[in-house]
């Protein structure tokens, strides 16, 4: 038992190397917030495109559905490589400008932006499905009432349907956000020293896995409260539902 603790919970080691892991965790947080933000926005755009009415928009709906199906069916790791290596190749051929192929926007390194793009593309697809569930859960009568007042489909979506849908899907969106946060670890493959890579670096240098444990704690400090928040939100919605409020 003591050996176990010495191996995984070497508190002296954790204290000595706290800064290394914490610097990595800052990257995790930055990736999560920026990637999460764009995924939320992109997901909503996809969901709305998927709901465009009438036969003229059918091609847009098909493309959107195809995109969502494809990105949900590909490993995020593959998307990360595809984006990073793909953009770099296009840029070196001169097909796209260097500022786009190897982005250093706002002083952030290119692995960060490749990661943000990959997270947005993949998690946007996941979140689009969540939004869709929310949009479809808004009673039909809401759209009818809105259209009967002369509001267009777009206005009805914007002012009537989407605001209600978003409220309904806050808990599952938060769940997706937790998953996204954990998946930022994959971006370590591009050489970004985020939490997991910081643990690996410490392990290779000192042959001590406690850096991983420290990283795990840092994740949990954020993810557990988020999980509680999800439960609390669900409970709140259920109570509302029990009172008979749609």
């Amino acid at each position: 038992m003591e050996v176990f603790f010495d191996t995984f919970f070497d508190f002296n080691f954790m204290a000595d190397n706290f800064g290394v892991v914490f610097d990595g965790f800052i990257w995790t947080i930055k990736l999560s917030l920026v990637g999460g933000f764009f995924a939320l926005v992109w997901g909503l755009i996809l969901a709305v495109m998927r709901q465009l009415p009438g036969k003229w928009f059918a091609p847009i709906r098909w493309v959107t559905i195809g995109y969502i199906d494809a990105l949900r069916g590909i490993p995020l790791l593959l998307v990360i490589f595809l984006i990073a290596n793909g953009l770099a190749t296009l840029s070196s051929q001169g097909t796209i400008p260097r500022e786009i192929g190897i982005p250093n926007w706002f002083g952030q390194p290119d692995p960060f932006w490749y990661g943000v793009i990959a997270l947005t593309l993949t998690y946007g697809a996941y979140m689009a499905e969540v939004y869709r569930a929310g949009i479809e859960a808004v009673p039909r009568g809401q759209m009818e009432a809105s259209r009967s007042l002369g509001m267009s489909h777009g206005q009805s979506m914007r002012f009537v349907i989407v605001p209600q849908a978003v409220r309904k899907v806050i808990p599952p969106l938060l769940n997706d956000f937790i998953a996204l946060m954990k998946d930022t670890a994959l971006i370590s493959v591009l050489g970004l020293v985020e939490t997991v890579q910081a643990g690996r670096d410490l392990y290779s240098e000192f042959f001590n896995p406690s850096g991983y444990t420290l990283g795990a704690f840092m994740f949990l400090i954020v993810t557990i409260p988020l999980a509680r928040l999800v439960d609390w939100q669900i409970k709140k919605q259920e109570e509302k539902f029990e009172r008979g409020i749609p």
Binding site: S146, I245, P246
Partner: peptide
């Protein structure tokens, strides 16, 4: 949309925006 703005409709299930 022109038609609908000249024709008011009230539904059985109210359909107020909650």
């Amino acid at each position: 949309d022109v038609l609908r703005r000249e024709v008011g409709m009230v539904f059985q299930s109210f359909n107020l925006f909650p």
